[in-house]
Amino acid sequence: MDGTDHRILSELTADARTPLVTLAARVHLSRNAVKQRIERMERDGVIGGYTVVSGAGSPRRVTAIVLVYREDRMRGAHVVTELSRIPEIVRCDVLSGEFDLLAIVQAEGMDRVGEIWEHIAALPGVANTVTSVSLAQVIDRP
């Protein structure tokens, strides 16, 4: 599975009734390409079925905060460009102080958070990372 598969899975988890054409637009693929990916995930057991969930909202996503220290102290755009390609990174700020970047990750589980962390830590120019996982959201302002 690649990032696009994870994004499709995330969209379907939020709303399994999302039309293929809407999914295709969100992941920048054709309707048929999205359909083929969904069918492959069904065959491979990644998607085990579809169900109705009663109650308010979808299952809670895992939120992680990744602080990134760069070797070049922000003298190039390649790290930010790579982070922008990860759909689960919903926000990225340039920081003052010890760390250079703050990335907010919202993923479907800890396995995916781990994959994203491994990808970030392996990027050329990334010297160090510190990752924390949100245990509870107590204030949420727009």
Rank of each mutant, 00 (worst) to 15 (best):
H28E: 14
E11P: 01
R37P: 09
T13Q: 13
A33E: 07
R17A: 14
L23C: 02
A14Q: 07
H28P: 00
V21Y: 06
R37G: 08
H28I: 02
R17K: 13
A25T: 04
A14L: 12
V21I: 06
T22C: 00
T22Q: 06
V21L: 01
D15V: 08
L29N: 05
K35L: 09
A33H: 01
A16Q: 09
E39H: 14
N32G: 10
L12S: 11
V34L: 08
T18C: 07
R26V: 01
S30C: 01
S30R: 00
H28Q: 11
R31Q: 15
A25F: 00
Q36A: 09
A16K: 08
R31A: 03
A24E: 02
N32D: 05
Q36S: 12
E39S: 13
I38E: 12
R31F: 01
A33L: 01
L20H: 12
R40V: 13
A14S: 11
K35A: 14
T13G: 07
P19Y: 04
T22R: 10
N32M: 13
R31Y: 07
H28F: 08
P19M: 06
V21E: 06
R40F: 06
E39Q: 14
L12T: 13
R17T: 15
L12P: 07
R17Q: 15
V27M: 04
H28A: 14
H28S: 09
Q36N: 13
V34D: 02
A25Q: 09
L29E: 05
K35V: 00
A33Q: 12
T18A: 05
A16R: 13
R37D: 10
L20G: 11
A16G: 15
R17S: 14
A14V: 04
P19A: 14
L20A: 05
V34F: 00
S10Q: 07
R26C: 02
V27H: 07
A16Y: 03
R17E: 13
D15P: 05
L20N: 14
E39Y: 09
N32H: 02
D15E: 13
L29R: 15
T22G: 03
L29M: 12
S30T: 13
R40K: 15
S10V: 01
A33C: 02
V34A: 08
R26K: 15
V27I: 06
A25G: 11
V34C: 11
D15N: 15
T18W: 01
L23I: 14
L23K: 03
S30G: 15
A16C: 13
R17P: 00
P19H: 08
T18E: 12
V34N: 05
A24Y: 01
R37M: 11
T22M: 02
R31M: 03
S10R: 11
T18L: 10
A24L: 06
V27R: 03
Q36I: 05
E11N: 04
V21H: 04
R37Q: 14
S30K: 02
I38F: 15
A33Y: 01
P19L: 11
E39L: 14
H28D: 10
I38D: 04
E39V: 12
V34T: 05
R37Y: 05
D15C: 04
R40H: 13
T13F: 05
A33M: 03
V27Y: 03
L12Q: 12
E11K: 10
H28M: 11
A14R: 12
A14M: 07
D15S: 12
A33T: 07
R31D: 13
R26M: 11
S10K: 06
R17W: 03
A14T: 07
E11A: 09
